[in-house]
């Protein structure tokens, strides 16, 4: 017994501090969410009463839950291909060395380092028809400026534009890393054969990037599903709830309507959906290493 504890002691203080923090702030909240979701729990009065699965049943009949889910899916479905396509385009244009390319990479990646509130500060005014550059541009070409953030047919589109500008650099970086792994001799061989760049792209680049593409797609879906800040600050979910997303509805349910149990139930469902998606990402990363 004594010798065993002597071996394990250093391990203990190497692993324990992190595991304690991890257990408290990452594992325990999961169980807490499940338990809270079974209660009617008021934030203001802190009154709790056990109601079983009623929160979950209520969710299925709650039109705002469904519209928020649909808005989130709409954002995911439109933003994901755009963020992947433009990210891949940037990476293809900027693959390789050279100081000019590094400078362009810096330019495209730069917005990613800023916080969501800087992004909304800039784009909130960009989209403003009177004060913003987009409105000015419309007037220059003789068009009526668009009310980007207050017109229901444009609001979600505006959110997607701001998000594209903000985060596409992240995908570009992942694609650049993937492109660097492609064996250059493949291109040398194909140029000897007189292949065009279209053939290069479809027979060498795209197949070699398959894994990176899968990884970026899954990561992007996970990221897009968690959209909150842009919407919360730019449109508050409006106009008419057309941009209200799931995390925003969870936030409002918990902190505006004070229904913590119901908010927990929705958070847990969101967690389940995302865990399934993340599971595939996890499998992909493991394949690699």
């Amino acid at each position: 017994m004594r010798s065993k504890s002597r071996i394990n002691l250093p391990v203990l203080y190497f692993v324990l501090p992190f595991m304690v923090v991890y257990g408290i702030f990452q594992i325990y909240p999961l169980f807490q969410a499940v338990i809270a979701s079974l209660f009617k729990w008021d934030l203001l009065t802190s009154s709790m009463s056990f109601i079983g699965f009623k929160n979950y049943l209520h969710m299925f009949r709650d039109p705002t839950f469904w519209s928020s889910l649909m808005n989130t899916l709409k954002f995911v479905i439109f933003s994901t291909p755009l963020l992947i396509g433009v990210g891949l385009l940037f990476a293809l244009l900027l693959n390789g060395t050279g100081s000019k390319k590094v400078l362009f990479r810096t330019a495209y990646f730069a917005p990613y380092v800023f916080s969501v509130s800087i992004v909304t500060l800039i784009w909130g005014f960009m989209f403003n028809p009177q004060k913003g550059l987009l409105g000015e541009f419309s007037r220059m070409i003789g068009e009526e400026p668009i009310n980007w953030l207050t017109d229901p047919s444009f609001a979600m589109f505006a959110i997607i534009i701001a998000t594209l500008w903000w985060t596409v650099g992240f995908n570009m970086v992942l694609f650049l890393a993937g492109l660097q792994d492609i064996d250059p001799s493949l291109y040398e061989a194909s140029s000897l054969e007189g292949a065009s760049w279209v053939q290069d792209f479809s027979y060498i680049t795209l197949p070699s990037l398959r894994r990176t593409l899968e990884l970026v797609t899954i990561l992007q879906i996970i990221m897009s599903f968690q959209i909150f800040g842009q919407v919360y600050i730019l449109t508050k979910g409006g106009p008419g709830g057309t941009t209200r997303v799931l995390i925003q509805y969870i936030y409002e349910t918990g902190f505006r309507d004070h229904k913590l149990g119901y908010a927990s139930a929705m958070a847990f469902i969101l967690f389940l959906v995302m865990a399934v998606v993340s599971f595939f990402q996890f499998r992909l990363s493991k394949e690699e290493n």
């Binding site: 992190f18 595991m19 991890y22 408290i24 702030f25 990452q26 594992i27 325990y28 909240p29 999961l30 807490q32 969410a33 809270a36 996970i222 599903f225 968690q226 909150f228 995390i247 969870i250 936030y251 918990g254 913590l260 908010a263 927990s264 958070a267 847990f268 969101l270 967690f271 995302m274 865990a275 993340s278 599971f279 990402q281 996890f282």
Partner: peptide
């Protein structure tokens, strides 16, 4: 167990963290 934590989406956990 630690790697499994990578699958927990951060933004889905704010209600239980808040309660804690």
């Amino acid at each position: 167990l630690t790697l499994a934590g990578l699958m927990v989406p951060k933004e889905a956990m704010f209600i239980p963290l808040f309660l804690m």
